[in-house]
Design a protein around this nucleic acid. Sequence first.
DNA 1: CTGAAAGCGCTTACAG
DNA 2: CTGAAAGCGCTTACAG
Lengths: 332, 332
Amino acid sequence: MKSNITMRDIAERIGVSSVTVSKALNDKEGVSDELKAKIKALAIEMGYRFNAVAKSMKEGLSYNIGIIIPERFSGGNFYLKFYQHITTMLEQYSYYGILQVLSAEDERNLQLPRTYYESKVDGFIILGQISSKYIDLLTDNNIPKVFLDFYTDHSDIDSIITDNFYGVYELTNYLVKEGHKDIAFVGNIHSTSSIQDRFLGYYKSLLEHNLSLNEGYIINDRDEKGTYIDLEIPNPLPSAFVCNCDQVGYNLMNKLRSMGYSVPEDCSVVGFDNDIYSTLTEPQLTTVEVNIEEMSKVAVEFIIEKIKNEHKNSGRVLIKGTIIHRDSVKKI
Amino acid sequence: MKSNITMRDIAERIGVSSVTVSKALNDKEGVSDELKAKIKALAIEMGYRFNAVAKSMKEGLSYNIGIIIPERFSGGNFYLKFYQHITTMLEQYSYYGILQVLSAEDERNLQLPRTYYESKVDGFIILGQISSKYIDLLTDNNIPKVFLDFYTDHSDIDSIITDNFYGVYELTNYLVKEGHKDIAFVGNIHSTSSIQDRFLGYYKSLLEHNLSLNEGYIINDRDEKGTYIDLEIPNPLPSAFVCNCDQVGYNLMNKLRSMGYSVPEDCSVVGFDNDIYSTLTEPQLTTVEVNIEEMSKVAVEFIIEKIKNEHKNSGRVLIKGTIIHRDSVKKI
DNA sequence: CTGAAAGCGCTTACAG
DNA sequence: CTGAAAGCGCTTACAG
């Protein structure tokens, strides 16, 4: 597929220089409209294809962005959706996305992606929480980067996250409005910043409604490695469960069913993410839809800015989600 | 992140030419071991990063492969798994994969990917069936390509597919061995080559066991657009259903449950793919696991071969899957 | 074992 | 409005 036709070939056929062809094809000034049209027509006729590699070479930019997904998040298709929106947005800047799954091993051994060592990318979008040490590594190497769907205490790094805090806050408010007072939270609150913030949103709602936080109502859902564990259902049964994500909502529904409970008759359940798991339960889950498209758009804007201007700092951006009402909540 | 350190910088520091540095860093002959070691050490010390773009430029190869997934298959994470294995395999050849979702619109309008027009890739792996006209377009443009997980009647194109035919053939044999005689097939047999072959494997098993093919036992599962439709369950109920994929097995199980039937007590169900849907049913589905890793490996080998030698033709390769026994089949 | 020269296909800065 | 020159960072083929 090596394109044998170059700008020079076009130039020679017409009897101009390759500089003129370059200007014409890029719609730059300094070529008469007549000549420009003639060059463009001939380019098509000759089957000319632009050589982006040559441009990269000249500009010292690869026009690729590495999209890094830590291995443990690569299972679902949630991040794949992000990736699709990211690549769509990147196209507008003539950029391409190279998806890389960061293996647990490479993350532990602080092994940077090969794209970095081969100057194959101009920067990275990190999709999903990575270890603090790995972040330090990226920072120390002065690698342009943007965090998507998580953040850390490195205040100088741009992050785009869904508004976990307000999302769950509003969802819990909704449960309270429906008459619920005994509301449990399901999630390991030491696991990721997302879960922590969702928990805090839940807690804020309790505080505002003078409902006390019951230690027994914080139900762990996964171990340190992120593997889901068997859920311990409190006795007596809370009237509602706020799950930190839809998949855990799905697990909870199965657990409740196996114990003979019906949702929403015996208790209500809400999730977060609006991913496939929220539609696999019976009844389907009321949940919060993450605005993947908008988040991806902002992430791309930020990384492109960052490549142009190393010192550009856009900070932490929260993108609001939307509550999706389904049938897993009962008014009491 | 522009790497300011070049081979020439290293060369000047040591007092040799950049040719020697290139040879040393690439472990080529013609440099004394002593010098080689010195150059390598200095490269690390200076934080040198190889510039793959310059190599691409020189060789006229982008060292990228486009992985094209038609939009309608981009929903699940089945193809994402392929993508992961593909990129892992590509690394061994110093290649990178650029994933592109082919929109229904671009497919219809015969719009080639932008990576092609910008010479960003050296070839394509097409992951999932695309229209015949689009295939013609790729062929007419002389684009190196390999088909993964589907094939067509274009006999000159390399395809790597799972052994659909024998997979379902063996699975149906297993049902017959368990005493089943009234076996239905669920799938639109005019939809894709995969479904067709799976159907034919089912039919072969019937033929070999002198079981007649009952027209009413071929149950359509999707319309022309690939959207799943409501399943019509035959009356009387067959003793077993062979579903063309796990997701349809999942749909069928839901349908059967809603009608008051129990699996496997009232009838048995088997699927294909061993994807997430096979584990979401209760009981979980007996199915055929597709050997994604091996298929990806072969696809990468083929496309790399093809880039080196345009006329290399490897044909159609069938990769065997493995039956996964779970609890959705009863011996009768 | 080592290096000068040429070239991959563009674009930028400058001269005319 | 048009073009000659230089350069991006490598590698190949050849000469010494």
